[in-house]
């Protein structure tokens, strides 16, 4: 077999693997969207690709009119957006400090910071909840934002990105009279945009999908977030049947902002992931 033929075979095999993987990934999502147009009985028909007797938006209509879904959606969007903005600000600042400044106990602090990422959330759930309770933040928007504005992983990620920025750029700026804040805002932030994009997507996703914490701290049908709301739908039955069709419609709409965010920021995200993967 010639080199060209071997190369083509390799490319073909690679494509088969990638396309198969893509199809396997897309299949549940496609089924979810498809099922959102069916009744519960049709959802449980076999084979699953059988079309509905009548294509209809009834599930979407009843989702938007019969449940507090619009509230859940807005709550989730607002929390995810605010947390993302705060995380980008605080993590980039802290990462900047760890990457570019020398201060006492810096390494010890950094080790503690990294060490804290090894503590599973389940372990801090109760103490954090108790803390929120003591300061009267249960069912208060602060509890959905403040505890999550400076995650250790985000600080670590930003430190790694900012370390790659040449210190000479900062020194030049200082010689030109730039303040430290200006250096941060006008030199560091633009240069670590791929890192910020990566962190933004990860943070937004984390907040958007968060279930246990909002379940614990939020009370009331109109103040909860999407994951808790959809879990409520599984319990809160209309008639007697679990509203699978409406839940599929809800899940379909949940995935829209996430996909949109990824599409918009895809270029930066991929650049952020691959940065440092090759040596220039």
């Amino acid at each position: 077999m010639s080199d060209l033929a071997r190369h083509r075979l390799g490319v073909a095999l690679l494509h088969i693997v990638v396309v198969t993987g893509a199809l396997l990934t897309m299949l549940p999502i496609a089924w979810m969207v498809y099922a959102s147009f069916k009744t519960t009985t049709e959802i449980f028909m076999f084979p699953p690709w059988l079309p509905p007797a009548q294509w209809s938006f009834d599930n979407y209509h009843s989702l938007l009119t019969g449940w507090a879904y619009p509230f859940w959606y807005i709550n989730s969007l607002v929390y995810a957006a605010i947390v993302t903005v705060f995380v980008l600000f605080f993590c980039s600042l802290a990462g900047f400090a760890f990457a570019k400044y020398a201060f006492r106990a810096k390494n010890i602090l950094f080790v503690l910071l990294i060490g804290s990422t090894m503590i599973p959330f389940q372990l801090i759930l109760i103490p954090l909840f108790v803390l929120m309770s003591r300061i009267d933040w249960i069912n208060h928007p602060y509890s959905m934002i403040i505890p999550w504005v400076a995650p250790a992983f985000g600080i670590f990620l930003m430190r790694q990105y900012i370390q790659a920025v040449p210190s000479e750029l900062m020194e030049s700026a200082r010689i030109d009279g730039a303040s430290e804040v200006r250096i941060y805002a006008q030199i560091i932030v633009p240069l670590v945009r791929p890192g910020l994009t990566t962190l933004a997507i990860l943070t937004f996703l984390g907040s958007w999908n968060s279930y246990i914490w909002p379940l614990m701290v939020l009370r009331g049908n109109e103040v909860i977030t999407l994951p808790v709301g959809i879990a409520t739908m599984a319990s809160q039955v209309t008639g007697s049947a679990q509203p699978y069709g409406e839940m599929m419609a809800a899940a379909t709409m949940v995935s829209v902002p996430v996909i949109a965010l990824f599409v918009v920021l895809q270029r930066h995200f991929i650049a952020g992931l691959t940065i440092g993967a090759v040596k220039g």
Partner: peptide, 19 residues
């Protein structure tokens, strides 16, 4: 009167916190 998913987890956490 509210529907709360995983109500036992939520209640236990609240009891632990003295809520």
């Amino acid at each position: 009167f509210q529907v709360v998913p995983s109500v036992f987890d939520v209640v236990l956490t609240n009891l632990a916190a003295g809520e």
